[in-house]
Simulated scan of single mutants.
Amino acid sequence: MKQNFTVRQGALDGVEAFLSVARHRSFRKAAAELGVTPSAISQAVRVLETRIGAALFVRTTRSVGLTEAGERFLSRAKPAFEELVAASEVARDLGQRPSGLLRLSVPRAVIPILLEPLVASFCKAWPEVEVEIAASKEVVDLAAEGFDAAIRLGQFVAADMVAVPMTPPFRLIVVGSPAYFEEHRPPRHTDDLRHHACLRWRRSSGALALWSFNDNGEALEIAVSGPFIASDFPTMLGAALEGVGLAQLPAPLAAEGLRAGKLVEVLDAYAPVMPGVFLCYPDRRQMLPKLRAFIDHVKRRQTGDSGMEAKKEAGRGGGRTR
């Protein structure tokens, strides 16, 4: 049978007073140490003894000693109380300065083009913060999974999340390799995609994503077909570079391939504009300094400020976040 273990309300009341009296063998010295009156210390100890059901001290007009029950209670309570104090100090330290483990849930596509340079500069600026990146295509529950924040495409940011923009809006473009277009005529209209090998993306829900377009201001979604299905944009990019077929990708992800002539954009007149990439987190009131430092770092990277300036600002109390 499963047991329920609980700590009674007030079960720790008087323990600090008891430990101070036991250490000094004096109610008066314990009162001075804790900044209260001797009568308050005496009352706290009496309440503790009543709750325990045993006398903990032997009191005379000239001395204070421990009973056998007091000795046994001291041997167990002292290390336990010290551990509680140490735990409080560790938690307080995390609440006062950027330190500890910062866990981020991110889509794989943003790691090489956005996150790697950002994290490198952040780690140099804040060496006491450890950054853990969990790449996933799923939109995870940050609180349930123990993440401090997530990096998400704008269309996947929930309404109850606080969002900080990391990129401006970008186009969602269709690209293919020169080798592919040596064998296939470039499409001029979205209807032409019926005659092309289109690389598809399977969402975390299991559904195949439709291709999105903007046709003279009207949103258009098309179910395409082709020989290859991937679960993330980088894999689709790799397949497009190899000439497997056409891929619809965020423009920043395809930018290097376009510059190098390894990719060719088509249907550019139909490319929709996406909201961009955002750093999002649940509630600014629950934010620890490590996350606040990362948010400020994101903002300063966008404006070109240095990590040293970030530290100076943190020393002045830090900046407010959105």
Rank of each mutant, 00 (worst) to 15 (best):
P168Y: 04
P165C: 06
H184L: 03
F181M: 02
A197H: 15
P187K: 08
R185A: 14
D160S: 12
M166W: 06
D192C: 07
V164Y: 07
F181C: 05
H184P: 01
V162S: 04
R185V: 12
I173P: 01
T167E: 03
T190K: 07
T190R: 14
Y180N: 09
C198L: 14
F181E: 03
M166G: 00
A197C: 13
C198A: 15
D191H: 15
L193C: 15
E183P: 00
F181S: 07
R188S: 11
A179W: 07
F181P: 02
V164E: 14
T190F: 10
V175I: 10
G176Q: 06
M166K: 03
M166Y: 04
P178L: 05
T167Y: 03
F170H: 07
C198G: 13
V162T: 14
A163D: 04
R194P: 03
A197I: 00
M161Y: 15
E183D: 12
A197D: 15
H184R: 14
P178H: 09
P168K: 05
E183N: 12
D160T: 11
L193I: 10
H196P: 10
P187I: 00
D192L: 06
R188Y: 05
E183A: 14
S177T: 09
D191V: 13
E183M: 11
R171G: 02
G176K: 07
H196R: 12
P165I: 04
V164M: 13
V174Y: 02
M161W: 13
P186L: 02
A163N: 03
P168N: 06
P168R: 10
F170Y: 13
A179I: 07
L193T: 07
H184W: 08
A179M: 05
R188Q: 08
P169Q: 01
L172F: 08
C198T: 12
T167F: 03
D191Q: 13
R188L: 04
P187D: 06
R185N: 06
V164S: 11
I173S: 04
E183C: 08
R188W: 02
D191C: 08
R171V: 00
S177K: 07
H195F: 15
R194S: 15
C198Q: 14
E183Q: 15
T167Q: 04
H189S: 12
P169K: 00
P169T: 00
T190W: 11
P169C: 00
V164I: 13
R194W: 14
I173H: 02
R188P: 00
P168I: 01
Y180F: 11
P168M: 01
G176P: 10
